[in-house]
């Protein structure tokens, strides 16, 4: 794989990292050509569904860079970037892809050399991992699309949006949650929402609980619980009963 040239997408915040990347150029510091940069105003703007979609479509790696903590142009946008990135990493792993294919780093406007080092290091890391399996392996691609759907749905978004406040300021009763507690809640929610979205995608073709259980390698009781929730949400419904076993199908939304 020595001639493998990874496709890497970088989200750079306008005020620090994008300026840092410009400084790398002004300083004529050289780095490999694999990075394709998308300018965003703030690293906190990088909504996890976007990198997940790019990974599903064949990007070998996605990096996000922002202002250093405490130096955010928008005061604290990078704190939210951090929260969102941790969700992103969890979902990438759930989808069966190496979590090291995504990276979050802080690069200031004056760190031209650091930007080059960060990019070079990330490209090396992706080269070691090899080409993304998402292009060849439909299971992983489906997993990433399910992860994207999970990141677009209410529950995980609401949780990530509130995480920072739950840890630092507490809930409406003033109870603060520790990072450990938040991690536990997050892990559970990510697991459930990812699986539900995976089922939802699979059920574009009608399947039984047994079929889903075999396909996903999950206990049929757990699958059934998810089916109950998915039916409550109006995402899937009973399609037909074949040989005494019910087949479910994703509801088409007009």
């Amino acid at each position: 794989m020595s001639d493998f040239e990874p496709k890497i997408i970088g989200f750079l915040c306008n005020w620090c990292s994008y300026a840092g990347a410009d400084l790398t150029g002004v300083s004529r510091i050289q780095y490999p050509t694999n990075l394709r940069i998308i300018r965003v105003m703030c690293s906190g703007r990088v909504d996890p569904p976007l990198p997940l979609r790019f990974l599903a479509e064949g990007a070998d790696g996605v990096m996000i860079t922002g202002c250093h903590i405490g130096d955010c142009h928008y005061i604290d946008g990078n704190l939210y970037a951090k929260r969102k990135f941790s969700l992103l990493r969890r979902l990438v792993e759930k989808a069966g892809l190496e979590p090291d294919r995504v990276m979050l780093e802080w690069v200031s406007a004056s760190e031209g050399q650091k930007f080059a080092d960060v990019v070079t290091g990330f490209i090396d890391r992706i080269k070691k991992l090899g080409p993304t399996p998402a292009a060849e392996n439909p299971e992983i691609r489906q997993g990433l699309l399910a992860a994207q759907a999970a990141a677009e749905a209410y529950r995980l978004r609401a949780l990530v949006g509130k995480e920072e406040k739950l840890e630092t300021k507490g809930n409406v009763y003033g109870d603060k949650l520790s990072q450990d507690e938040l991690d536990r809640i997050m892990d559970e929610a990510v697991d459930k929402e990812y699986t539900r979205n995976r089922i939802k995608l699979l059920l574009k073709k009608p399947m039984s609980v047994k079929g889903l259980s075999e396909k996903l390698g999950i206990d049929s009781k757990v699958v059934l619980e998810h089916i109950v929730v998915l039916r409550q949400r109006g995402w899937v419904d009973l399609h037909e009963v074949r040989d005494h076993s019910p087949f479910y199908k994703t509801m088409e939304v007009a």
Binding site: I38, V40, M41, C42, G44, R45, V46, D47, P49, L50, R53, H73, Y74, G77, Y80, K84, E152, Y154, R155, R157, A158, V160, G161
Partner: peptide, 25 residues
């Protein structure tokens, strides 16, 4: 114009002008 609200909105009801999801995608 940071876009943190849009990237966090649980209902995905917020659009960031000039840096929309569709444009970035």
């Amino acid at each position: 114009g940071c876009g943190v609200c849009g990237a966090s909105c649980p209902e995905r009801a917020i659009t960031m002008r000039h840096f929309t999801n569709e444009e970035l995608e």
